[in-house]
Simulated assay, not measured.
Amino acid sequence: MTYQEFICAIETKMNQKLEGGVKAAQYTAIKNNGKVKKGLLIETPGVNISPTIYLEEFYQRFTDGESMEGLVQEILDFYRIVKCDQSMDANGINHYDAVQDKIVFKLIHTEKNQELLKGVPHFRLLDLSIVFYVLLDVNSRGTATMTVNNDHLQYWDVTAEDLFALARSNVKRLLPAELFTMQQAVDEILCSVPGKKKNLLQESAPEGADFMYVLSNPVRSFGAACIVYPEVLDMAGQVLGEDYYVLPSSVHEVVLVPVSKSMEPGEMDAMVMEINQTQVAEEEILSDHAYLYQRDARSLVMQHSFHL
Rank of each mutant, 00 (worst) to 15 (best):
M1G: 08
I7Q: 07
A9C: 09
I10K: 04
K17N: 13
K17I: 03
E19P: 05
G20P: 09
V22P: 04
A25V: 13
T28Y: 04
T28L: 09
A29G: 07
K37T: 10
K38L: 04
T44G: 02
E56G: 00
E57P: 03
E57Q: 15
F58Y: 14
Q60I: 07
E69A: 13
D77A: 13
K83I: 01
C84R: 15
M88L: 15
D89P: 03
I93Q: 01
K106I: 08
K118A: 12
L125D: 10
D127L: 05
L128S: 01
V131G: 03
N139L: 07
S140R: 14
G142W: 02
M146E: 05
N149E: 04
N149Q: 01
D151R: 10
D151A: 12
L153R: 07
Y155W: 11
D157R: 12
T159S: 14
L166R: 10
K172D: 10
L175E: 00
A177V: 10
T181P: 08
Q184H: 13
I189C: 06
S192E: 10
K198D: 02
K198G: 05
E203F: 05
S204Q: 08
A205K: 03
R220G: 00
R220Q: 13
A224W: 03
A225V: 03
I227N: 05
V232G: 03
L233V: 09
A236F: 00
E242Y: 08
E242Q: 15
Y244H: 06
H252F: 07
H252S: 10
V257G: 03
V259G: 01
K261P: 00
S262T: 06
M263H: 12
E264P: 06
P265L: 13
M271S: 07
E274M: 12
Q277I: 07
Q277R: 12
Q277L: 09
V280F: 10
A281M: 11
A290M: 03
L292F: 06
Q294T: 14
V301W: 02
V301Q: 11
V301G: 05
M302V: 09
L308W: 14
